[in-house]
Write a protein that binds this DNA or RNA. Structure first.
Lengths: 215, 215
DNA sequence: ATTTTTTTTAATCATTTGTTTAAATTATTT
DNA sequence: AAATAATTTAAACAAATGATTAAAAAAAAT
C-alpha cells in the first residue's frame, strides 16, 4: 500500500487523467463532472484518480491553475513587455488571444465562471493580475492619455473594451452562430478577421472620446 | 396524497421556492445547487419542492425560461421596433441592457453557460432568436450598409461587438475590479457611463471600416 | 531469480442527493 | 360542525457519488 509523492513517476496514466479532467471540467464545470466520468473518459480505473490526485477537488485545482496560467500568460507577456508602442502591443495581444481561444474555445467561460464564484481565490494564486495595473503597458496608456496624445478614458473602459471585443465572441459563439446563421467554419474565419479589426476598432474608440476632451 | 396541478394555488410558498431557486441557480448553476440548499434558502420543507415543481430539473427549466425571457425581451423589443433610426435603437438597447444587468448581475453568465452547454435546447424554446436575423433592425443595418450610408461590416461583427461591449463587463466584473482596483460603487457608475459611450463607440467602429471600402 | 516497490483492479464504504411516502396540519367547502 | 381537499412535515428510500481498502499485477531494484 505504497502511497506516492505525485510528481516523480510515469506520465502516461497521470496525463490521461489530467487531459480527460481538463476536457470535462472545462466543458461542464466542477459540480457537473463526476469522478466516474473522468475515469471513463480517461479509460482508467476509478481508484487511480484518487491514487494520483488525492481528490476530485485537488485535481480540479490543478486544471484550474493551468488554465489560469494559459489565460494570463498572454496578457502578462504583452503587458510587461517594455519594447514597442501601444498599437503594436495591442496587435500582438489580440492576435495571441484569438489564437489561444481558437485552440481552447471553452477556456474563457471556464475561467470567468471560476472567478465569478470564487473571486477571492483567483488573485491569491495568480499574483500576475495585481501586476497588470502596475504594468508598463498600462503606464504607457496612462501617460499617453495625460500627455494628450491619446484622449482620456478611464482605464477600466479601455481594458474592458479590449477584453470584451476579444473574448466575448468566443463565449457567445453558439448564440451568435444561431442568431446570424453563420457556420462553424465561417465563424472561425470571422474570428481570424478580428485579429486585424479589433486593434483598429480600439483605436477608433479612443479617438471618439477626444470630442469630449476637446470640447 | 392529493397531487395538484401546479398553476392554480397559493403563491406564497411556491414563490418562495422560485425566488430561492432563481438566486441559487443563477449564482452557482444547476449541478452545484442541491435541492436541500433551495429548501433551506426558501425556508421550506424539502418535500415541498417536489410537491410544487415535481423535480429539480423542472424547477430549473422554469427559472431558465424566465431568465431567457428577461434576457431576450429587451433585444426583441428593440430589434423589431419599426420606429426610429439605427442610432436611436442602439441607444435604447444599450441603456435597457445595462439597467437589466445592473439589476441582475448574474444573469448573463447564467444564460451564456446554459447556451454553451445545451446549444440546441436554447432556440427551440425561444423562437425570438431566429427572428433577430430577420428583424427590422438587422434589415435596417444591412440596407444602410448596402446603400453606403454605413460602411460594410459583417453583421456578426456588428452584433458581436455591440453585445460584447454591453455584456462582457458584467460577466468579468470581479476580474476587472481586481485588475483596476475599482470599487463596487465606482464600477456601477462606470457601467452607467457606458450607456452614453457604447453607442458612440459603435458608431466609431462602423466608421473605421469605411477606410477599407473607400480605398 | 527474488525481493521490493509501484501501479492497477474490483469491491466496498459512508455520504450525499433527488425523490417519495404516509401521516399531521391547515384551509376550504358543504 | 363535519367532511373534504390542499398543504406541510418528518422520515425514509434508492441511486449516485467521492473516496478507501486490500489484494493482484506489473515494473524496478537487488
Amino acid at each position: 500500500m505504497a502511497k506516492k509523492i505525485i510528481e516523480t513517476k510515469d506520465p502516461s496514466t497521470e496525463e490521461k487523467i489530467k487531459s480527460a479532467a481538463q476536457l470535462l471540467f472545462t466543458k461542464k464545470g466542477f459540480a457537473a463532472v463526476k469522478t466516474r466520468d473522468i475515469a471513463e473518459a480517461a479509460g482508467i480505473n476509478l481508484a487511480l484518480l484518487n491514487y494520483y490526485f488525492r481528490s476530485k477537488e485537488k485535481l480540479f485545482n490543478i486544471i484550474m491553475e493551468e488554465s489560469l496560467l494559459k489565460f494570463i500568460k498572454g496578457v502578462a507577456d504583452q503587458f510587461n513587455n517594455n519594447t514597442g508602442d501601444i498599437a503594436e502591443k495591442i496587435e500582438k495581444l489580440v492576435s495571441s488571444y484569438i489564437d489561444l481561444f481558437s485552440r481552447y474555445p471553452d477556456l474563457p467561460l471556464f475561467i470567468l465562471n471560476e472567478i465569478h464564484q470564487h473571486p477571492d481565490k483567483f488573485p491569491a494564486k495568480i499574483e500576475t493580475v495585481a501586476g497588470i495595473a502596475r504594468s508598463s503597458f498600462v503606464k504607457q496608456i496612462r501617460d499617453a492619455m495625460k500627455s494628450g496624445s491619446v484622449p482620456e478614458l478611464h482605464i477600466l473602459h479601455f481594458i474592458a473594451n479590449l477584453m470584451s471585443l476579444i473574448i466575448f465572441p468566443f463565449i457567445a459563439s453558439p448564440m451568435l452562430m444561431k442568431i446570424t446563421g453563420v457556420s462553424q467554419k465561417q465563424y472561425h474565419e470571422l474570428m481570424q478577421e478580428r485579429k486585424k479589426m479589433i486593434p483598429k476598432w480600439i483605436k477608433a474608440i479612443l479617438k471618439t472620446n477626444s470630442k469630449i476632451k476637446s470640447r
